[in-house]
Design a protein around this nucleic acid. Structure first.
Lengths: 208, 208, 208, 208
DNA sequence: AATGAATGAGGCTTCATTCAT
DNA sequence: TATGAATGAAGCCTCATTCAT
């Protein structure tokens, strides 16, 4: 064991590489903790203190990673969106390749419902935030962009060559999906998710 | 007998009727101010102080009418629901009588969109609240009931004799409507509400 | 039934006699309600509102009888003292006439213990107040007087001709009695009041 | 290597030891200020604000050390008791060793009177609290325990082998002492403490 | 004499943020 | 980089008291 490894937290600064690794890891950790707490307790009812504690770091250090609570929220939203994209959307595109439109629609819906139950935190936070942060223009803008992108993706799925002609249809489908999520999160267990899913698949596969 | 002795109750306390009038007026005033602020700024970002100020009364008086901020919220929710029922739902039922199912559906959708733009506060608050009040069981319960009732009404509209067989369909329609509202409130002006409305009417009237 | 008696609360002012009777009755009522609440909940934790409510009158009317909460407290203290005098002390003097000193002491102690359990409110409030109202000089003065008078009475009982030579002894006896009350009220049921009473009687009758 | 990198722990957080020292110092400071204010002004009439001000810290910091005003009170009571034990009771036991019962009693009484004048705050608060905290069960319980322990100590002093047979006597002595304190604090300077002390010593040394 | 709506000061508490170390 | 003591503003709520009626 070298002198350095024994005392490396006292004697010498960590290498820049080490530091950056730690930073990235920490940043993600904090964001994930915050995501969970924001989604379950709400943004306003979650204190910086609590997040720091749960993330195993000090309150003060939080401000080394995020300049304010609102900034943290922004990062949480972006992270959520990115994560949703990385999982749901990529999965989607992987699955629907070489499929007929009917099968593609079915797959998309199934994936959405899967996400909805498995990544409840992200979904819940997204919907919740979109409504409760009118006084935070940055967040508002981000949410607005996220929704718009979703419309475009669905429109593209329905008609890759002329997405604009199915725009209204795409918006309705997106609305239906988000509306179902909304109701499911509010009503809870007694919402018969499977019945709704099957009916929705039936409706849309009949239609397209 | 002097004027005064004739009216010796002139120095009596206000009559019960007077007091009740004052109370009713104030209660409604406060609820309406609170509704607007909760809907635009969010529940947590709206202080009792702000509501009182906007309502032109003292902070202390708020507690003469509502036992706590949460109690006020509950009353706001109930008031909103009642008002929505009194306008949207009654209107609906009045309009759809003697109409074919197609026409009835068209009417319902049009009324919903009308409400959505005209009573934006109420809608926005409802959706917003339903997501941000995990830690207020009372409100959660009320919201849950409100949504469930909406499903039933739609199901009844579609098939008055066997509402349960169209339950899933009703939930989808309700979800679509609430989802549209959600997107509209988040995205704002650039959301082409008319296009969506027309497409939705087309879809549903074709179907039923 | 006369016209007047039917409408006497509307048509004509009550006679002065009636008014004074009502005033006296009300005053006593309020004081007694306040006494109970102050003794059980404490002075600071008892609101004027609560007292008014319990007494069946309006908050505003309270200020027709007492100029402030502190004034009410003062009256409560004086009333308590007067009531204690009227019962305990008069009873005492009645009973100890023609008795030997031993018997008189026994009687006094028995009466004190009786009062302590039966008029717990008054005792408790007195002790409590004497300690918690350092910032209310009026009350402080009254309490001080009450205690001093008690010393004198006991001294006079022990030696009617030269009460000053048994002053210290009288203070010790008074302290013992009040100390027992203090402990009893704090410790509650598990304090063996009878054992202490009998021992005290034994001690004092042996001594004098 | 620069000066800074050599001492790169100069920017490290305070050591745990330092922090603990700060916390201990502050905690004690606050408790002592609170003790004085509670004892002189009463618990309810002493605001957190006032305590913070007197302790020279911000209101908010109070809650870094005590979770609520009632929690602070509890700590004050426990601290007072501990301090009383550490001084009065230890002193007592040190002094009465190898003494006759008569001398021991004399010493105990003298120590009690000394405490009463020198640590007036603690005594006053104890008596005061015991009466005014009916609605704080925790404090009630603590006070109850403290009094009970005092009885046992006195009983043990009087008859180490069979303390239970002198229990009533011990309670009477304890009551007398606390009663004297009560009267002294209420009546103030005009209470002739020395005369009472001497008489009490005379009484008890004659008796045992 | 009587009511209760209304006020406003003050109390307890939380929490984002800063800063010395 | 890291800590947590410290701040101060703001929030919710209570309550003695006043006042129009």
């Amino acid at each position: 064991m070298t002198e350095r490894s024994v005392k490396n937290n006292i004697m010498a600064p960590r290498s820049e590489q080490e530091n950056e690794n730690i930073r990235n890891k920490r940043t993600t950790e904090i964001i994930m903790v915050a995501l969970e707490l924001f989604a379950t307790k709400g943004y306003h009812s979650t204190s910086i203190s609590k997040i720091a504690q749960q993330a195993g770091i000090s309150k003060g250090l939080m401000y080394n990673y995020f300049s304010s609570k609102e900034d943290l929220l922004k990062e949480v939203v972006l992270f959520s969106y990115k994560k949703a994209s990385d999982t749901l959307l990529e999965k989607m595109q992987a699955e629907i390749q070489h499929k007929s439109l009917k099968d593609a629609i079915k797959t998309v819906i199934e994936l959405f419902f899967e996400m909805m139950t498995e990544n409840a935190h992200i979904w819940k936070l997204s919907i919740s935030l979109s409504m409760q942060v009118t006084d935070m223009p940055d967040i508002q803008t981000i949410m607005s962009k996220i929704f718009s992108e979703a419309f475009q993706r669905i429109a593209f799925l329905l008609n890759p060559e002329n997405p604009e002609i199915v725009e209204a249809e795409a918006r309705i489908i997106a609305a239906t999906l988000d509306g179902i999520a909304l109701h499911y999160y509010v009503i809870g267990e007694s919402y018969d998710l499977d019945a709704v899913k099957n009916k929705l698949i039936e409706n849309l596969t009949n239609k397209f």
